[in-house]
Design a protein around this nucleic acid. Sequence first.
DNA 1: CCGGCCAAGTTGGCCAGCCAACTTTCGGCG
DNA 2: CGCCGAAAGTTGGCTGGCCAACTTGGCCGG
Lengths: 255, 255
Amino acid sequence: MPADPDRTAGALYRTVAADLRESITTGRFGEAGRLPAEGALAEQYGVSRGTVRQALALLRADGLVTSRRGTRRVVLGTARVQSFSELLSFTHWARSMGEEPGGRLESMVRRPADPAECELLRLEPGTEVYVMLRLRTLSGTPVMVERTVYPPRVGEIVAELPADAVSHTEPLREHGILFTDADHTIDVVAANTEDARLLGCRRGSPLLREKRRTTDPTGTPVEWSQDRYLPGTVAFSIHNSLASSALSRHARDGD
Amino acid sequence: MPADPDRTAGALYRTVAADLRESITTGRFGEAGRLPAEGALAEQYGVSRGTVRQALALLRADGLVTSRRGTRRVVLGTARVQSFSELLSFTHWARSMGEEPGGRLESMVRRPADPAECELLRLEPGTEVYVMLRLRTLSGTPVMVERTVYPPRVGEIVAELPADAVSHTEPLREHGILFTDADHTIDVVAANTEDARLLGCRRGSPLLREKRRTTDPTGTPVEWSQDRYLPGTVAFSIHNSLASSALSRHARDGD
DNA sequence: CCGGCCAAGTTGGCCAGCCAACTTTCGGCG
DNA sequence: CGCCGAAAGTTGGCTGGCCAACTTGGCCGG
């Protein structure tokens, strides 16, 4: 699967968006320059203005351009937003940076879900889930501990994978398990004994935690994961704007 | 300014979106139920299908509903996405949680910008900037240290505010300084001596850091800020999907 | 009873057009 | 020279329509 989803689909507006994105990042419109008018772009690409507007909406959501009534769009930044899969898949992300991803399976157990897990994965109480613990490495050095809970349908497939499989999301996709929507929560926790042992840090030392709940196109949860990163190895980056915002700030209230 | 931007604008699609959002969060369509068809909604609200689609695009971006070709939309979650201003303004955010925000100005100095600041705020080398250091509190207890660099146009206004002003963004808005787009980067840092003194923690103890660069509608940077939160006081939450994604994961490479 | 095919329902995508709101520019006038 | 107003340019918003792609459920035949 190509890295850029804009290029994959046959949708016209994604093609236009991809082309504009490249023009922007290569500086064709200048550092803080202005884009051609919607009408001009429509004529240039041979599409309707509505299609151009769809393409520009993608760029605006990524924080590449501003847009307000009355003036041409202005280049905001020469973007770095990766594709959705680079965010979900550690493997994909690592490779896009030119690093060699690795994973060591520590444990994989099957047990009844606790009430909280049932709620998150939307399962009947007592359903069996698959709980995985993996140490993830970049070019051999440990950077992250991954604790993932899978519902049966997904866990059955993951359990069959070889223990040294680097990527789990890719085989899952081939089995028809699709990841399309994810909710992330990011905060700080202290390393517990297990974290410390696996990551080679001291117990109590700070880790960047990403909690993630992923669903498939039907809205069915397919994954509930807690990833704990060593400081200095990763940072999360988000763009938001008045036009549309998916980021929020929460008070923490336990796990 | 009302909390919900959907309600403020006269735009039809925002009104529809706000109404649908409420219907979803009050569970009118069920926990994981299905929405009425676009056509049905169009008739119900007396608008065209295109307008309904615009409204639904907002909900999809917020992670409230899925959408795929062939089936009705499905409720994903009963959302918690706040308005854009609740993310940018500590004051607004605190009040929406029922907490009493406070701020103590530690220092406000004017000095030439260093090269990195010039780059970020897009200023000529050597331009004078205003550097602010503030301790932010929730109901009296310190939770965050805020270090903000303002370009002259903005800094001049902030410098005139009383030292005990709780909110800075609100007065700025009244002076015509608008915050519309922001890039956030989230990671972990160790508290330095100053952080430790202000927050009452130990030097070297972990803090959740949010770096933020905010621009106005013209794309001109108006703020560059580093906020450092005590662990356990805040968490950041993001939704992303295959359809559109503004979140990304980065390798850290210094500040 | 099971499986496959077909039709209805639904969303994705694209087009053409219209008007309103807003910004910028430019020229005229004081 | 500077201010103000008009006009041109541009994006936001909304309508109505059309077809394609896809999902679902039911019908029919084996």
